[in-house]
């Protein structure tokens, strides 16, 4: 018993730390503009490729811009764009899934065919093709991400609704005269919210990776935007002389992606009421 409590409190402690870190990242991302000392886009060729100093804690890049400032602003861009496209995908996907799962029949079949079409191609390929067709730029990249991601949410919600809808407790709710909306709100929503949150926190990492990699190849954020993928691309020619210029944004990406994955795992455990007791 003591062991169980210890394990639980240890996990709760880790969870708190993780949330604090994630919240800090988001807060830094949101308030970067307020604490900036340097203009992230100000070109100063006299200070190009400076090493770390008190004035520039992480040095300056090939155009003499402060790397720390750009990295922090990059957090705002990368994480912000990631969250924005994720939110849009959830907002579009969830209602589609609910309707398809609840109504079934023709509506469901049409929906499934559309979903299959989207799922037939890997995320990156669709994003590249769309960015290629609509032209490079962060707006088009976000549109592409929403287009490839909403299907996952719709499918997840649809399958949850279908599975739970067959269970006896829904039958009993029908016997009690609950409307479809009432069943959805009271009985199915608690199942959906956990699943969607877990998937979206896992997805956040993937989306950030996608934004960064497409920006790296020049299809996403355009210069001088300090997006991390774009910063990687900017630093590429100086790989041998100033390796750190690539390592900073690289580490930032790894850090946020890992964080969102671990957070997803913990959220999954947290929403699994049953597992908490068993462990």
């Amino acid at each position: 018993m003591e062991l169980v409590i210890k394990k639980k409190s240890k996990r709760r402690w880790r969870m708190t730390v993780l949330f604090t870190v994630m919240a800090t990242v988001l807060a830094v991302a949101a308030y970067t503009l307020l604490i900036l000392k340097h203009d992230p886009a100000l070109v100063n060729l006299g200070e190009r490729l400076w090493p770390a100093s008190m004035e520039h804690p992480l040095g300056t890049d090939h155009l003499g811009r402060d790397v720390l400032t750009r990295l922090l602003l990059g957090a705002q861009l990368t994480v912000g764009y990631g969250l924005l496209s994720l939110f849009a995908a959830v907002i579009i996907g969830v209602p589609f899934g609910v309707i398809a799962g609840f109504k079934g029949g023709l509506i469901d079949r049409i929906f499934m065919r559309i979903a299959d079409a989207f799922l037939a191609f890997p995320d990156t390929i669709v994003a590249i093709v769309l960015s290629g067709l609509l032209g490079p730029g962060i707006e088009n990249l976000l549109l592409a991400i929403v287009l490839v991601k909403w299907v996952n949410y719709a499918r997840l919600v649809r399958s949850t609704v279908i599975t739970e809808h067959q269970k006896d407790y829904v039958t009993v709710a029908k016997i009690n005269g609950l409307s479809s909306f009432g069943i959805m709100r009271k009985h199915l929503f608690p199942h959906l919210i956990g699943n969607v949150l877990v998937l979206s926190s896992l997805d956040l990492g993937k989306i950030i990776l996608l934004i960064s990699s497409l920006s790296y190849i020049g299809l996403g954020a355009q210069p001088p935007a300090p997006e991390w993928g774009a910063m990687l691309n900017d630093a590429r020619p100086y790989f041998q002389s100033n390796m750190l210029l690539m390592i900073y944004p690289g580490l930032a990406i790894v850090f946020v992606v890992l964080l969102s994955n671990i957070l997803g795992d913990y959220l999954r455990d947290a929403f699994d009421v049953k597992k908490e007791v068993e462990s």
Partner: peptide
């Protein structure tokens, strides 16, 4: 009519919403 008729089903494991 529904207020006058209730049911107890076979499998109690699925007759209660696990999330509630």
């Amino acid at each position: 009519y529904r207020k006058n008729i209730q049911a107890v089903l076979q499998n109690p494991a699925t007759a209660l919403n696990p999330k509630l």
